[in-house]
Amino acid sequence: MTTKTMQFSIYRYDPDKDKKPYMQDITVEIDSSDRKLLDAMVKLKAQDDSIAFRRSCREGVCGSDAMNINGKNGLACLTELDGLKQPVVLRPLPGLPVIRDLIVDMTQFFKQYHSIKPYLVNDDPPPERERLQSPEDREELNGLYECILCACCSTSCPSFWWNPDKFVGPAGLLQAYRFIADTRDQATNDRLDDLEDPYRLFRCHSIMNCVDVCPKNLNPTLAIGKIKELLVRRTV
């Protein structure tokens, strides 16, 4: 098996011993079976067990291993090693407090997600069988429900960096629209009321970084546009 050396520059910070963060240069031998960035990172960790990062499914569905890779947010498990400019610069997701190394505190991110009431609201007595929904109505949820809450989008958004406590951010807004778009949900008006706010929704300036980085190819900007449209339509 052919091996080659790859160079990395990794953001390191352990509040238990480091006064401040620093970038560590480190090289690792990879072989032809190592195709994704996460494969190389597992080898890096075998070399130096103190490098801390989250990971789980290694196939892009759990959303654990989001990080900033050569300046752009992405998932390590879906990032091809081939074609990565070296040294590969790995940093934690921007805009959230760092707990350690590549691990960020996602409290604020989830708080915004929870704030949009991310659950179906339907107060009718549940029928004995499933609530019916036409295939066309169900299709409205495609491109919305697939979100993996990795936070790549929200942490690439300058509006979220500035107002993480007030602006819901692209991930939360995408999910807000997921429930608005669901024909089974009865809370559309409450949801729109909640978002009709200079910060919660209207801090989005369509910079579209979210669309650019989403590892699932979802489009939060489009969803945000649809929410704005519904708000306008509601007033006329």
């Binding site: 179906l120 549940p126 499933e130 295939p135 169900r138 669901d182």
Partner: peptide, 19 residues
């Protein structure tokens, strides 16, 4: 499974709107 549908699970649908 019906409960899960009531919780909001986005099942695919048949032409008649069922799971």
């Amino acid at each position: 499974v019906i409960e899960l549908e009531h919780f909001g699970m986005p099942f695919d649908r048949t032409e008649s709107g069922k799971i």
